[in-house]
């Protein structure tokens, strides 16, 4: 570990984040301010998620890191290597074998279990930010539960496009109180937030906010009676494993319009291919 404290952060910072996490779990969906530290990577690469992971990780934990569902993309590989180096923990790509899963913008397809913790990297934790740029104002809006403007935004989608055009970072209401940004996961993943078995923690490094959705918590995606919430669907199955129940990425295969749709969750896709083989 070459002179670093276990998991990079010093103990006092970890305790500060841990106290914040307990508050976040006690007030589901409320964004707790915390003293974000500078991490050895730029903002926007998952510094918030890394600080949470560093604060909860123990030497016995097995860590999995995914980026848009994939274990083998730059962000996932570098964060996994970082914790291998500064914490010496075991890592895995298998969803079911991980104790802590840090994720950028996806929830694994394999259902999570009660002893797992999912840590989300969040770029902009405030769901109202694009509507109201002032932090002071959005804080009052949360305090007063003044969320009508969020429905206005979704309604404008319907007026313009005929349907709700928000496809990722789709706002949710947690336990009937706080409107919360689920991080830029596709809305396909929103139903997995509802009554999840696993604890879900969210960390935003640049904005210095953390929040949580405890297990078995009601999470509703905002919608209208005549325009109910819907998730994405595809006409064809995954080209590699044939799955019809997973989130598919479009992959361009040539320059004459060839394309294929494959699972964004690489671990899920590989496991299914192995089962078939």
């Amino acid at each position: 570990m070459n002179g670093y404290n276990f998991a990079y952060l010093d103990e006092q910072t970890k305790r500060m984040i841990r106290r914040g996490l307990l508050k976040a779990v006690a007030i589901p969906g409320y964004q707790v301010p915390f003293g974000g530290r500078e991490m050895p990577m730029p903002y926007g690469w998952g510094t918030g998620g890394m600080q949470l992971t560093a604060s909860i990780l123990g030497e016995d934990d097995v860590l999995k890191v995914i980026d848009q569902g994939a274990d083998d993309t730059t962000n996932a590989v570098s964060i996994r290597a970082f914790f291998e180096r500064v914490a010496g923990v075991e890592t895995t790509t298998a969803t079911a074998e991980a104790d802590v899963i840090q994720t950028r913008h996806r929830i694994p397809e394999t259902p999570l279990s009660a002893d797992q913790i999912l840590v989300f990297q969040v770029p902009i934790p405030e769901p109202l930010r694009f509507i109201e740029p002032s932090e002071e104002e959005t804080r009052v809006m949360h305090a007063l539960e003044e969320y009508g403007v969020m429905h206005v935004k979704l309604y404008e989608d319907i007026a313009r496009h005929g349907h709700i055009a928000t496809t990722y970072a789709y706002p949710v209401k947690v336990d009937g109180r706080y409107v919360t940004d689920p991080s830029p996961i596709p809305k396909f993943d929103n139903p997995k937030l509802h009554m999840s078995e696993a604890l879900m923690l969210f960390g935003a490094g640049r904005e210095k906010r953390l929040y949580a959705i405890p297990p078995h918590t009601r999470v509703e995606s905002l919608d209208f009676e005549d325009h109910p919430f819907e998730i994405q669907a595809w006409d064809e199955p995954c080209a590699l494993c044939g799955a019809r129940d997973s989130f598919l990425d479009e992959v361009i295969t040539d320059d004459v319009g060839g394309r294929m749709f494959v699972c964004s969750d690489t671990d899920y896709c590989q496991r299914r291919q192995e089962e078939v083989a």
Binding site: K14, R15, L22, I56, L199, P214
Partner: peptide
Amino acid sequence: DPVQDGQRHFRRVLAAMAEP
């Protein structure tokens, strides 16, 4: 072992808080 024992105990408290 302040680092590991502190972490282990925190995870107990976190689990207790997450599942009242």
